[in-house]
Nucleic acid binder design. Structure first.
Lengths: 112, 112
DNA sequence: CGGCATCCGAATGGATACTG
DNA sequence: CAGTATCCATTCGGATGCCG
């Protein structure tokens, strides 16, 4: 049951790529938002994540989906009702992201 | 003693900026490396973080230092011996970064 | 509402060369 | 060893417009 030896410090390690998707400019906030909402619409995400554009939200969601961290579900055939949720793996990572955010809150008073 | 209400989702919140420095392309790996080494030289960091260039390492260290997460110490007056270490706040955040990396390791087998 | 396509300026970041 | 400076390609990412 031992996992393969991953090493984020090595460029060729798949974990490095995953980390980069997770810690990409909007990836972190998107995962954090999905961890709160558990099932959100595109517009809800855009409103929640201050400053993100349609293009970047769309791109970020695709990357997260391609990496298996997020699922996209269309309610009907049209594109009118689509929502996003975390996969089991996404939840695991998003929980750690939330903890990271909270660690920032904890030190922020000391940083000005 | 309640901390101010921070919100990373808001562009104008200082915690958002801190999070961006922490989760910048090389910031995460630099913090992770410093958490392992506790006191590392420039060259040690560069060798540890595969793929980083002098320029980016230098720039990332400056950002982390400016944010109060890292300290820079020159042994003598020349620039021959300099090392970097985490501040107390840096250690707090770096610990959460390590946890994030480990969460990636945990899910990586399922992601291919 | 939930996108995609295009344009284009701004920022990122690597390579290389150089310095104390 | 620990950077700095310059050049330059790539990428980022916002604005706009269009579509089902």
């Amino acid at each position: 049951m031992s996992a393969p030896d991953y090493d984020v410090f090595a460029t060729q390690c798949p974990s490095r790529e995953t980390l980069e998707v997770v810690t990409s400019r909007w990836g972190t906030l998107t995962l954090a938002a999905l961890h709160e909402g558990e099932r959100l619409r595109f517009g809800e995400l855009r409103r929640r994540i201050d400053g993100i554009s349609d293009k970047m939200l769309s791109q970020t969601l695709k990357q997260l989906e391609a990496r298996g961290l997020v699922t996209r579900t269309a309610q009907d055939s049209s594109a009118a009702h689509v929502d996003y949720a975390l996969t089991a793996e996404g939840r695991t990572v998003a929980t750690a992201v939330i903890a990271l955010v909270q660690s920032v809150y904890r030190v922020q008073p000391a940083l000005g």
